[in-house]
């Protein structure tokens, strides 16, 4: 680990922390109930699992509306604009540098919370994977209304279920890697603590490069 002095910066606002932890609980419950509905295991019982899955799915949808609204109103969506700059360095860091105690190639800052790998991952998650799950989930939920909505001609529950299942696996895999990545800070629990307090400890004195900076509001 680095022996550079650390400085605390306020990285995650109250809403972001609220959103993160509520969403994490919803996602875990959705995964559990979703895979039970899929028949992978039996725990709550089919009806309870379906009921909970539906309720949580709709709750998440409401939360998601607020998240998207917040992202655009605050301009924070720019944190997710993808880049390949330093992407290879980040990959190399996690593949080898981390074992040699090298410093992270991209420093977290208020204006650049995410390294290039995180930007790509979170953009894919927020802009593609989660909307796909929400869309397929909503359609799945409204199955019995398809004839009334004129959708029964070209929608197939089987195809919908397949896409929703693939999405579920993708989110589960993301969750595993994501939880592990939180342990890669300067201490094992540093990142998790930051997501509770909002304050992340970063090495002192490193400058944020211009390209990383999201254009600040004036």
């Amino acid at each position: 680990m680095t022996h550079q002095p650390l400085v605390k910066i306020y990285l995650y606002s109250k809403f972001e922390r609220f959103w993160h932890w509520v969403q994490s609980a919803l996602i875990i419950l959705l995964l559990v109930t979703g895979f039970e509905v899929h028949g992978s295991f039996a725990w709550l019982g089919f009806m309870a699992a379906v009921d909970l899955h539906n309720t949580i799915g709709l709750t998440w949808l409401i939360l998601f509306v607020f998240i998207v609204f917040w992202l655009f109103v605050t301009g924070e969506y720019k944190q997710y604009i993808p880049t390949t700059r330093k992407l290879l360095e980040v990959v190399r860091y996690y593949a080898s540098g981390i074992f040699r105690g090298e410093p992270h190639p991209v420093r977290k800052s208020r204006v650049a919370k995410h390294n290039p790998m995180q930007r790509l991952t979170y953009l894919g998650l927020t802009a593609v994977l989660l909307p796909v799950q929400m869309a397929t989930g909503l359609l799945y939920w409204s199955y019995n209304d398809w004839p009334a909505w004129g959708l029964d001609g070209f929608l197939s529950l089987k195809v919908l279920a397949l896409v929703h299942l693939i999405g579920g696996f993708a989110i589960l895999i993301f969750l595993i890697v994501h939880v592990y990545m939180t342990t890669t800070g300067h201490t094992v629990t540093a990142h998790i603590a930051a997501m509770f307090s909002g304050w992340e400890e970063v090495p002192e004195g490193e400058e944020v490069e211009d390209w990383e900076r999201m254009s600040e509001r004036r």
Binding site: V37, H38, G39, S156, L157, K158, A161, G168, F169
Partner: peptide, 16 residues
């Protein structure tokens, strides 16, 4: 008909 809980996609489940 596709029935949740009964039907699965063996390849996707395995790959997943």
């Amino acid at each position: 008909v596709y029935m949740p809980g009964r039907d699965t996609f063996a390849m996707v489940d395995a790959a997943g």
